[in-house]
């Protein structure tokens, strides 16, 4: 790791100002950023720590929505009675992120801002049609994810919370990369309050995306068999050491079917 300046922000606006001034980066749970810095793959001159900012904390259930503060740790989402009661799929997703150490440090806001192509949270946000709330604005899920490690966030924009509309049912199933155990293919399926089916896939492409063919199949019948029978085209999917695009295309309906069964 290179030497780095550390600053602690008092509020989201304060953090934004410190980042704008220093050209540095926000530090949430640090589970991706610190690792990249240790490998000297990232070298921010300044880290602005978001820990302890009151407005970024807390899980709230409001009329038909579940709101999770950006600095909420994965372990706290996994253990939250409110989450388990309203959208249990999110608690299960959080419980499956990384290992215990990662879950005790990593945050939902940090994960979304990083938008790793194999991260779990983006699938939930996109499938549930959640809203990402920043200290400046509200960004709909379909506008938020822009590409590999790219989001709609400005460099000095701080996520404060994520607001999830409560679906009728939902589930996330991750098919892990045998080495990293990140999602090789992760599928979040949801039947929203209006009855529509949404399916978001992570790990399979440069950024999270909706599987239109699986959604169409589930619109007709929200059943595992319907999901499994869907055809996903391999074009545009990732191909690497661990999986060809064709294998990922095959896995998406298979894993979607398992998610539907679990929903």
């Amino acid at each position: 790791m290179y030497a780095v300046e550390y600053q602690k922000a008092k509020s989201a606006a304060d953090a934004s100002g410190l980042i704008a001034k220093s050209g540095g980066r926000a530090l949430a749970g640090g589970q991706s950023l610190i690792g990249a810095m240790k490998l000297r793959l990232a070298q921010p001159g300044t880290l602005v720590d978001l820990a302890g900012i009151p407005e970024l904390a807390g899980i709230r259930v409001e009329s038909g929505t579940l709101s999770i503060g950006a600095m909420t740790r994965h372990a706290d989402v996994a253990g939250s009675a409110d989450v388990k009661r309203t959208i249990p799929a999110l608690a299960a997703l959080a419980e499956g992120i990384g290992d215990r150490q990662v879950r005790n440090m990593g945050t939902i806001g940090g994960s979304l801002a990083n938008n790793d192509p194999a991260a779990d949270w983006p699938a939930a946000v996109l499938a549930l049609g959640a809203t990402v709330i920043t200290h400046q604005r509200r960004i709909g899920a379909s506008d938020f994810f822009k590409g590999m490690y790219e989001t709609a966030l400005a460099a000095d924009e701080i996520i404060t919370a994520v607001s999830f509309p409560v679906p009728r049912k939902a589930a996330y199933v991750k098919f892990p990369n045998p080495a990293s155990r990140f999602a090789l293919v992760g599928v979040f399926v949801a039947q929203l309050a209006d009855g529509s089916a949404r399916v978001a896939v992570t790990g399979a492409a440069p950024s999270v995306f909706r599987a239109a063919s699986v959604e169409a199949a589930l619109a007709k019948a929200f059943t595992p068999d319907a999901a499994k029978a869907a055809h996903v085209d391999a074009a545009g999917l990732s191909s690497d050491l661990h999986a060809s695009a064709a294998y990922r295309a095959h896995l998406i309906p298979v894993i979607a079917a398992r998610a539907v069964a679990a929903a």
Partner: peptide, 23 residues
């Protein structure tokens, strides 16, 4: 699980961390 893979052209080690080398 395990398999050390070098790129056959460039000779770069593709399984150079636990992200890609499965223990």
């Amino acid at each position: 699980l395990e398999g050390c893979i070098y790129d056959r052209e460039s000779g770069q080690l593709l399984t150079g961390s636990y992200m890609d080398y499965a223990m």
